[in-house]
């Protein structure tokens, strides 16, 4: 099972099961491809929401100036996670250790939101009270969606423990906002 800890140097260390690391790397690669290649995707309204809710001309102007930079940031974050979580051949039972540099923390946190946004789109999660009844094909996405949220929450909890000067802890995920 994945665990998130603070190292003595105050860095985030995540120990993944090989399957979990592979899944995360695959997803990150897919998100990078989606943002790079898809001309439009239903998840884009979540990844690139309108900056003006009652002025479509101003929203379009904002998009013209900001969209490319935002997309680049999200693709770079996905590639950071993809590179860190990609592992070669492992012995059975071997753990994948990922240590995040200070520069890696935000790409990881933002990417976890981005991938959850795409999964939420596929699962039809529209609001806090959405009752999800995915069909069989999508059923495997729901535990994945929850696990990614747990991972993000655990990283934040570890960072917060650093802020208040506590020792290494295993973080707990938070309630969905």
């Amino acid at each position: 099972m994945t665990s998130v800890q603070l190292t003595d140097a105050g860095r985030i260390r995540i120990d993944f099961e090989p399957d979990e690391a592979t899944m995360l790397a695959d997803l990150a690669g897919q998100i990078a491809d989606l943002i790079t290649d898809a001309p439009h995707d239903s998840a884009f309204t979540r990844l690139f929401p309108p900056a003006y809710r009652d002025d479509s001309a101003a929203a379009a102007e904002f998009e013209r100036f900001e969209r490319a930079g935002l997309a680049e940031g999200k693709v770079n974050a996905a590639r950071t996670v993809h590179a860190a979580a990609s592992v070669g051949e492992l012995d059975p039972g071997e753990i994948v250790e990922v240590e995040l540099d200070d520069d890696d923390v935000w790409p990881w946190l933002t990417h976890l939101t981005d991938v959850r946004s795409v999964l939420a789109d596929r699962l039809g999660i529209e609001d806090d009270d959405s009752e999800i009844q995915p069909d069989d094909e999508l059923l495997t996405l729901l535990p994945l969606y929850d696990w990614l949220g747990w991972l993000q929450g655990a990283i934040i909890a570890a960072l917060e423990s650093l802020e208040v000067g506590e020792g290494a802890v295993t973080g707990e995920g938070g309630e969905a906002d």
Binding site: A120, E126, Q152, E160, D177
Partner: peptide, 13 residues
């Protein structure tokens, strides 16, 4: 705006 994806502790962070 509220959304169903982001965790409360992430938003505050």
């Amino acid at each position: 705006w509220n959304d169903p994806v982001n965790l409360m502790n992430y938003v505050a962070f």
